[in-house]
Amino acid sequence: MTTLTRLFMVAVAIVIATAAGAQDVHFSQFFEAPLLRNPSLAGIFSGDIRFQGVYRSQWGSVTVPYNTGSFNFEYKKPIGRGDDFITTGLQVVYDKAGTTNFTTSSVLPAVNYHKSLSSDRTKYLSLGFMGGLVQRRIDRSKMTTNNHFDGRGYNPSLADGETFLNPNYTYVDGSVGLSFNSSMGANEEDNYYLGVAYHHFNNPKNSFYKNPEIEMNAKWVASAGVRYALNETSYFTLQADHTVQGSYSETIGGALYSYKLGGEDYDSPLYTVHFGAFLRWKDAIIPVVKLDYNPFSIALSYDVNVSALKTASQSRGGMELSVTYSGFFDRDNSTRNAVVCPRF
């Protein structure tokens, strides 16, 4: 590798690190991390309980790999005498980026209330809140600054010259969201949702320095999804998000085709195979394959980079793996027996 190429790749890594610091973590399998999209999407699934984990590794072909993990838990139950439901949940995120191990860890409890708008079909308006603690830290020993160069070359024994208040800090973060979820036509399996969320509404601080003017940019996320059966054994699912955070914006969307296999009837297949693709506008094409083997699901995706970084990255973006468990409780008021219930 030539010196010029090395310098170019270092510059690309700096650009990537700067961009990552200016926005939240995100996943190509955004549909497997609903609370990160919108807390009012918690509980919109078929089941009483759901666990989901997503792992992402990206930019390994350019610089130190960026590793991100998400885990969320949701528990849905009926409330009152009508068809209303409440979902409680928890979102945990871990992200490590760049040479200095810039790490973000968050623990965010969530609650979502689903108000029924119809007694004879699925139609719900949901209001959700999520908030908790976020910690950010860096490994100062891995920093390289101009102060490390003494005229003869690089000298790691010299002080870095930075005046950090603290190489780690913790803040409180909060999000709120609203969504509408409804069935379409006579088939209860055909449904859709629309949602909007407002993240970081408390404008938490976002600096290792003691500077109150540097705050986390608020983030708006608009979400939509449609599931439509083609016949008894197959259906399409389309989902999309549009995100705006400060000067940054992102649009991602796509579709999965699903086919049911095995089992005694079409409502309870032994397997369901999903495959399709998503597009992160001006950034990546994302093929996805997924397998359901109730009560588990596993999905694998890969970002094929098509942005201006494709020369340095050789079109290699990031790999993602997700695992989901969703199921019903054996109880009288399980959502398995509900005539109407939030689902997608």
Results as ranks from 00 to 15, higher is better:
M1A: 14
T3S: 11
L7H: 13
F8M: 11
A11Q: 15
I16V: 15
A20K: 10
E32Y: 02
A33M: 00
A33G: 02
P34K: 03
R37W: 00
L41F: 06
I44E: 01
F45C: 07
R56M: 02
G60E: 09
Y66F: 14
N67F: 02
F71D: 02
F71A: 14
K76P: 05
P78H: 06
G80M: 11
R81H: 10
D83Q: 10
D84K: 05
D84F: 04
L90T: 05
Q91K: 07
K96L: 03
G98Q: 05
S105Q: 14
V111M: 13
K115A: 14
S118G: 05
D120Q: 15
T122K: 05
Y124P: 01
Y124Q: 06
M130I: 11
V134Y: 00
K142Q: 15
M143D: 04
M143I: 13
N146W: 09
F149W: 11
D150T: 10
G153N: 09
S157T: 12
D160S: 08
D160Y: 08
G161M: 08
F164S: 03
P167C: 06
P167W: 03
T170L: 07
D173G: 07
D173V: 03
G174Q: 10
G174T: 15
S175K: 07
G177P: 01
S179L: 04
S182Y: 03
S183A: 13
E188S: 14
A197D: 04
A197P: 02
F201D: 01
P204F: 08
K210R: 10
N211G: 03
M216K: 12
W220L: 13
S223D: 11
L230N: 13
Y235S: 08
Y235I: 01
D241F: 00
H242I: 09
V244S: 07
Q245T: 03
S247Q: 13
S247K: 15
E250R: 12
T251P: 00
G253C: 07
L256K: 01
Y259A: 08
G262A: 08
G263C: 06
D267I: 09
T272I: 12
V273M: 12
H274P: 05
F278R: 03
R280Q: 11
D283A: 04
V288M: 05
V289L: 13
K290P: 00
D292M: 04
A299C: 09
L300N: 01
S301A: 15
N305I: 05
A308C: 00
A308S: 15
S315A: 13
R316N: 14
S322V: 02
T324C: 02
Y325S: 07
Y325Q: 06
G327E: 05
G327Y: 04
F329D: 02
R336M: 09
R343N: 13
